[in-house]
Design a protein around this nucleic acid. Structure first.
Length: 561
RNA sequence: UGGGGUGUCGCCAAGCGGUAAGGCAACGGACUCUGACUCCGUCAUCCCGAGGUUCGAAUCCUCGCACCCCAGCCA
């Protein structure tokens, strides 16, 4: 088990921190309040983690607080289950909103009152145009829009109509409430945006109290205002909404938080849009939202990523405003850093090849002491059994070794980690010429700690005693897509799904101590990579391991170069 | 061809008029009973381009170029 909760590195500067520094120094604010505002309509992914770490991190570093607020203004697509999973994910990531859990839907009554205020001020009107007509009136990027014929209704009529909308007198889509701004604005968001739509649908949090629901633009800024948010941090696509965000607050005459936008995360070798992620799940390309190949937090967790490694990642990639693509290798390197420092080591043979030690007594069992972590003696050690027949990795044997190969080969000596130096004497093949067994002799003096233990051999390989081994399923995961930008450039992104993103090894052999590995225990299988127990499919005595990441391997890279 | 943004090393990213931080990757080398880890070293005379201001510019001005976002009763 390993989770580093100690990421105390100095956060690098970014424009938002600079702004906050200035605000605190100038006295504009004495403390800050941020918020993470997900819509409960799907599962959180690594892109959300960037926002979570940013918002909660800002609050933590500047001694403020961060709210968790569900932006639940559209009952048509939201569900309670999503909200629950979001809470769980945020907690798992290591953040705590304390008492500050909010729902935009809890502000519906206030929002409604404010809408009436805007109507009375002549800043909003009920429009009878259909959705299609509104679109047609909106104009284009280069042409101004046209005003709705209902735009100049008297205040009393607007009030009456809006109240009747709220009372449920009209069917879905019959009318909307619009802000009366400017149909000729070069910023399309200001061309009389819709504030309320009629939706006869129960709300997962507000129940059946409403049949009209506010739009994001009308709800978000005011929610921020109600909560006293000082710095409302969102992604770049909301930049052009900022004038609208401010317009409502100014017209309402209420506290004005400030909105700042940063670039959302793009990661190579995966896709991040909810639509595509959903499609992968629905089409069965992956086993679910928590499939270890998915960039969802649930998926990463099941893959074996630690919360700390994801926080490190978010710190490492920085925060800016330029569209950026982070290489998947950065994320992978972050788990390796964490797991290298914290994961206990174990020996596991993924693709077994039997090795018979001819001069080792048939029934004997010897025990060796293996360090749980070579660099951290305080993590202790364990005893591992050794006998005449062991399994070694198929890759660790070559009948005709290539240049530079220093593992096992005919006539060649190699060390069995923590045990003896052995020398290959014979290769046994089946009828088709496949190597099915390797035979060797061992040198008793080379036992770890023995008189000839210091003898230099070219390589050290891992092994597992055949008689004591635990057989387990091991799932080798790799990147979901085989190209860096699956959703760029003409071709359907699905055609780039990496067919080798999952390889199931039904009968890997593990050292006996791993039989009862449980929970989300994480290990480094020496010379292989980092593996975690699959919390869902494992049973006591029959663990299933997921590969989180491989170890860096300069040998195979050299070979494929 | 409207509006809003962004352009600093392969990928991120500091820098805010005083002469290019850092991380990741890469490449050398040391160490090693994990070809892992760790350690040492190398890696932008140059900041999208062209002019200009200045003793001095990535940082200021001008004109270009490229890319991203906006025409949901989604968020």
């Amino acid at each position: 088990m390993s989770t580093s909760e100690t990421d105390t590195k100095q956060a690098t500067a970014n424009f938002i921190r600079t702004i906050i520094d200035d605000d605190l120094q100038s006295g504009r604010h004495t403390s800050i309040v941020t918020r993470f505002p997900p819509e409960p309509n799907g599962y959180l992914h690594i892109g959300h983690a960037k926002s979570i770490c940013l918002n909660f991190g800002l609050a933590r570093d500047f001694g403020g607080r961060c709210h968790l607020r569900f932006d639940d203004t559209n009952p048509a697509r939201e569900e309670i289950e999503y909200a629950e999973s979001i809470k769980e994910n945020v907690r798992w990531l290591g953040f705590d909103w304390g008492e500050h859990l909010y729902y935009a839907s809890d502000y519906f009554a206030q929002l409604y009152q404010w809408a009436e205020q805007l109507i009375r001020q002549g800043d909003a009107y009920v429009d009878d145009l259909s959705a299609d007509e509104i679109r047609a009136h909106r104009g284009t990027l280069t042409e101004p829009g046209k005003e709705s014929p209902y735009r100049n209704r008297p205040v009393e009529e607007n009030l009456d109509l809006f109240r009747r909308m709220r009372a449920g007198e009209f069917p879905d889509g019959a009318r909307v409430l619009r802000a009366k701004i400017d149909m000729a604005s070069p910023n399309l968001n200001l061309r009389d945006p819709v504030m309320y739509r009629i939706l006869h649908a129960p709300h997962p949090h507000a129940g059946d109290a409403w049949c009209i629901y506010p739009m994001y633009d009308y709800a978000h800024g005011q929610s921020d205002s109600i909560e006293g948010i000082t710095h409302s941090v969102c992604t770049l696509e909301f930049e052009s909404h900022r004038p609208l965000y401010e317009w409502f607050l100014v017209r309402l005459g209420i506290y004005r938080p400030r909105q700042y936008e940063f670039a959302r995360l793009n990661l190579t070798y995966t896709v991040m849009s909810k639509r595509k992620l959903l499609q992968l799940v629905q089409d069965g390309d992956v086993a679910g939202w928590d499939d270890p190949r998915m960039p969802t937090l649930a998926g990463l967790r099941r893959r074996g990523y630690t919360p700390g490694s994801i926080r490190t990642f978010c710190e490492r990639i920085g925060v800016g405003k330029s569209d950026s693509w982070i290489d998947m290798g950065v994320l992978e390197e972050c788990v390796r850093d964490d797991l290298n420092a914290n994961a206990t080591r174990a020996m596991a043979v993924l693709r077994p090849l039997k090795l018979v030690i001819e001069n080792f007594p048939e029934g004997d069992v010897e025990e060796f002491t293996a360090a749980n972590h070579p660099q951290r003696p305080e993590l202790g050690s364990r005893q591992i059994p050794f006998c005449r027949e062991v399994y070694i990795e198929q890759d660790d044997f070559m009948e005709t070794p290539v240049k530079g190969f220093h593992r096992m080969a005919p006539g060649q000596e190699v060390r069995l980690r923590y045990a003896y130096i052995v020398k290959c004497t014979e290769v046994v093949k089946d009828g088709e010429g496949n190597v099915v067994e390797v035979r060797c002799t061992y040198d008793p003096d080379t036992r770890t700690g023995g008189p000839a233990a210091g003898r230099k051999v070219k390589g050290t390989i891992h092994w597992v005693s055949a008689r004591h081994a635990v057989t387990a399923e091991v799932r080798l995961y790799d990147r979901l897509f085989s190209v860096p930008h699956p959703d760029k450039g003409g071709q359907e992104y699905k055609s780039f799904i990496n067919p080798r993103a999952l390889e199931v090894l039904p009968a890997a052999r593990l050292e006996p101590g791993l039989a009862d590995a449980a929970g989300e225990s994480r290990y480094q299988f020496e010379r292989q990579g980092y593996f975690t127990v699959d919390a869902r499919d494992s049973r006591l005595g029959a663990p299933v391991f997921n590969r989180t990441a491989t170890l860096r391997d300069s040998w195979s890279r050299e070979q494929s170069a």
